[in-house]
Design a protein around this nucleic acid. Structure first.
Length: 153
DNA sequence: GACGGCTCTGGCG
DNA sequence: CGCCAGAGCCGTC
């Protein structure tokens, strides 16, 4: 495992990657990565962050992710990654799309437990009435959405 | 049981 | 319209 960090429009993103699989296992706007992991200052993920910041909003598309969870959260995260940049979906819509109609609230919980922020774009999931909540504060969520071209929040 | 990044309805101004 | 209870709803711990 190795770790790294890079500045993004949402603040500094701290991440961890599994070197055997190459998959991202953690990404957060808080520095909560295991310090025993080797620190890397550059990688394709670092460059992807730079590209994303420069406007290449699909820069994370190719990256593999590994995240523990249940069948439910797995389905939610999978369908979450299908929400393209510049788009958004409500908690209820995502629930229905993933095959769990009526589970809007549970989707909120799944978003809150997402351990690979930004790459798994939980910030694109909004409430039916407004922007909805965010683990690191709605201002950051708003900045990200704005960066992706959604000014209506 | 209890608790969340929810949602819809109904009332009130 | 907008704002504020109230009451369901669903998966987790």
């Amino acid at each position: 495992m190795w770790r790294g960090s890079r500045k993004t429009p949402g603040g500094t993103l701290f991440f961890a990657v599994n070197d055997s699989s190459g998959a991202i296992i953690r990404a957060s706007f808080r520095d909560e990565i295991d310090k025993s992991f080797v620190l890397r200052k550059s990688s394709d993920l670092h460059t992807a962050c730079d590209r994303y910041s420069d406007g290449d909003l699909n820069a994370f598309d190719y990256f593999q992710v590994e995240q523990s969870g249940t069948d439910f959260t797995g389905a939610i995260y999978t369908h979450m990654r299908k929400i393209g940049p510049g788009a958004s979906m409500t908690y209820g819509e995502l629930a229905r799309t993933a095959g769990f109609p009526g589970a809007a609230r549970a989707v909120g919980s799944a978003c809150a437990r997402n351990e690979i922020v930004l790459i798994v774009p939980c910030h694109r999931v909004v409430a039916a009435q407004g922007i909805g909540g965010y683990e690191f504060g709605t201002p950051i969520k708003e900045k990200l959405l704005r960066h992706e071209g959604l000014d209506n929040f």
